[in-house]
């Protein structure tokens, strides 16, 4: 059983959570001047990384709050958990990332 460490409730079984796929996908600031290609990207194109992956989870059967996880999609190992709006920790083997400005 895979466990997801909720930042508020602690580690819980994965079936308590709702999955939100790739994290840090920002809605276009000025929707009206975006092209169809831009909208295709925002609506449908998501990273589907094999390996360490920044993704969103929501503790549906608990505190019902969204947060971010860095999880290995092959081994299911969780490297880091951080709250919405926090600076994303670096991926394993990566230099520290710039502060996150996509989520408000």
């Amino acid at each position: 059983m895979q466990q997801i460490p909720c930042p508020w409730c602690g580690p819980r079984d994965d079936w308590e959570f709702h999955y939100g796929a790739e994290a840090h996908v920002a809605r276009p600031e000025t929707p009206s001047d975006k092209s169809d290609e831009d909208w295709m990207g925002y609506l449908y194109l998501r990273s589907n990384t094999k390996g360490p992956f920044r993704e969103r989870w929501m503790h549906a059967a608990g505190c019902r709050r969204w947060f971010n996880v860095i999880r290995n999609t092959v081994s299911h190992e969780v490297f880091a958990v951080y709250k919405i709006g926090e600076t994303p920790p670096p991926l394993p083997g990566e230099a520290p990332a710039a502060p996150d400005t996509t989520e408000r």
């Binding site: 059983m1 895979q2 709702h18 999955y19």
Partner: peptide, 14 residues
């Protein structure tokens, strides 16, 4: 299917 992304070729017990 499980609801999360995975390449592990195994699913959750639930």
């Amino acid at each position: 299917t499980d609801s999360y992304n995975s390449y592990a070729q195994r699913g959750s017990f639930n």
